[in-house]
Amino acid sequence: MARATGCLAVSLGTALQICLLFGTASLLSVGGGNSVVPEIQLRAVDTYHWLSAAQFGDLFAIAQAAPGPSMLLVTLVGYKAGGVVGALLATVAMILPAGVIVHVVARFWQSSSGARWHVAMERGLAPVAIGLVAASGAIIARTTEHSPAQLALTAAATLVLCATKLNPLFLVAAAGIAGWLGLV
């Protein structure tokens, strides 16, 4: 299906498909944006034929590498489906439904501070949250770090960040240069 990407015009049908797909994905994305990637892939590739599976894989990698949340994958899929307008529609549709829920729950949560159950949740779930943070580090390391040099860099940087107040940007810059030079 040929689409004029980059063009501002988008057919009403495509616009509705974009809003429906990503609006639904927004509500289904419990546990983070990555949980609905398989569903988005199925719809965008097999149902709507906006792009090929290989292109979807490449867009996923681009969204991971670019700054900001990796759910901006939907911006790229929307862009392929309906140009810049499609990209913006997809982004808003992916954020708005879940965002309204988060806003309402956040207000309720904040207004209940001091209640026993609030104190218990804040105190009891802190160790759980820390376990989850460490787990996400381990999971990312397992999928992205393939060389001993990378693991050594992670270990050294972890020590430096734990022991000093050094701005992490210095380490990020140094690591980027090391990568560019082929050292890791």
């Binding site: 820390i130 943070v133 990378q150 860099l153 050294a156 940087a157």
Partner: peptide
């Protein structure tokens, strides 16, 4: 290649946060 280095530090930041 640049990302390979940066990702390693991003993981380190996550561990340091824990």
């Amino acid at each position: 290649s640049i990302l390979r280095g940066i990702t390693a530090v991003a993981v380190a930041m996550t561990f340091a946060m824990a």
